[in-house]
Computed example of a mutant assay.
Amino acid sequence: MRADEWKKIWKSEEEKTFQGWDFSYINNRTHEQPLPWDYKEWVLSYMQVASTLLDMGTGGGEFLLSLSPPPGRTYATEAYPPNVELCQKTLPAYGIDIRQVYEDDLLPFDSAFFDLVMNRHESYAVQEIHRILKPGGIFVTQQVGGQNNRKLSRFLLDADASLTAPGFNLAGSIRELEAAGFTILEAREAFPVIQFYDVGALVYFAKIIEWEFPGFSVERCFDQLCKLQQQVEQDGFIETTEHRFVIIARK
């Protein structure tokens, strides 16, 4: 296929719409190495003894709903306006109170309100988490570390343009939580790989993850995308390294 034909295909992927936090559109075009822990299982185990719980950065609420959370006792926060609008249309029917947030250190909840605060891939202010948790309350967080997709981002953008902090990792987060008065119950870190079976799937992904690929576009990165196309034709995939860590902490 000629380069201009590839460009047309990739531009169509670049223009796809995205809602909530649902990557199912490219599920069968990628393969992600599983993490050596199960965030969902850990959350479910703590939900069994929680009377009030919060899901921070719920996205479109897809993951939260998969937990079948208790109605009337479940709260969610989200900052991104399109996701807030989506959640306002869906979550109240399940008895979930959705709040739009603007600042990590100004959450709209009373002190010592929650038994469980869960946070998957959302920023947070440690002191504010400590404030809203009851004594003995649990904070479960899975985070995207600062080395996530960094090598691929440098290749595509010809520079270390990622807006994420390169030093954001497990050790630093543990120190911060302990300094705030938390006890660490569990902590793990991993660097799984994800494979893209076609360049179009990568284009769709990179356009969404704009904080790791700032300024990415098919036009700007076309030469690099053509090199990746050659790699797909040779190896069958493009591979990038992710960075994840998980912490369970008790107030």
Rank of each mutant, 00 (worst) to 15 (best):
L177Q: 03
Q195L: 09
E62S: 14
E62A: 14
P214M: 06
E15N: 11
F245G: 10
A76S: 04
Y25V: 14
E15V: 01
L64E: 08
P192Q: 01
P34A: 07
G172A: 08
H130K: 14
I98Y: 12
P34F: 09
H121I: 03
D158N: 14
Q19N: 13
Q127V: 03
P81Q: 13
S66W: 05
F196V: 03
S24A: 05
T141N: 05
T58A: 15
F113E: 08
W37G: 03
E13C: 00
E78F: 12
E85W: 11
F213M: 03
D97W: 10
I96E: 01
Q195T: 10
P71Q: 05
T183Q: 15
R120L: 09
E178W: 01
V84M: 08
D223F: 05
A161K: 13
L185D: 15
I194Y: 05
L44Q: 15
K151Q: 14
E14C: 04
L170F: 00
G167V: 10
L65T: 10
F191A: 02
G57T: 13
F216V: 14
A159V: 01
G59Q: 04
Q142D: 06
L156T: 04
E239F: 01
A201L: 06
D55W: 12
V117A: 03
Q143T: 06
D55P: 06
I174A: 04
S153M: 01
S162W: 07
L133N: 02
V144W: 00
L185R: 14
R220I: 10
P36E: 00
A180P: 00
F237R: 15
I129C: 09
G59T: 07
D55H: 13
Y75F: 13
T90R: 11
E85D: 12
L67C: 06
G136I: 00
F213Q: 06
M56V: 15
L107G: 07
E210N: 08
T30W: 13
L86N: 10
F196L: 08
F213A: 02
N148A: 14
P69M: 01
M1D: 04
A159D: 11
G59D: 01
E239H: 09
S162G: 00
Y39R: 09
R150S: 12
T141W: 03
K151L: 08
E178I: 01
P108I: 11
I129F: 08
D55E: 15
Q224V: 00
A79Q: 05
K251P: 02
G57Y: 10
D38P: 02
K227T: 12
L185C: 13
T183S: 15
C87K: 08
V203H: 08
D97L: 09
E210Q: 02
Q195M: 06
L152M: 15
E15L: 14
H31T: 07
F237N: 12
H121V: 02
D223L: 11
I132G: 13
P82I: 11
F168L: 00
I96V: 09
T240S: 11
E128I: 09
S51I: 00
L228W: 13
L202E: 10
A125L: 05
E78H: 13
L116T: 01
A180L: 04
N27W: 09
E122Q: 12
S12K: 13
N148H: 15
S24R: 12
T240L: 02
K89F: 08
Q19P: 06
E122K: 10
V126F: 01
L116V: 08
D110Y: 05
N83E: 14
Q230A: 14
E242I: 01
Q195I: 05
A76C: 05
F139Q: 06
G146L: 07
P34N: 07
C221Y: 06
G145H: 03
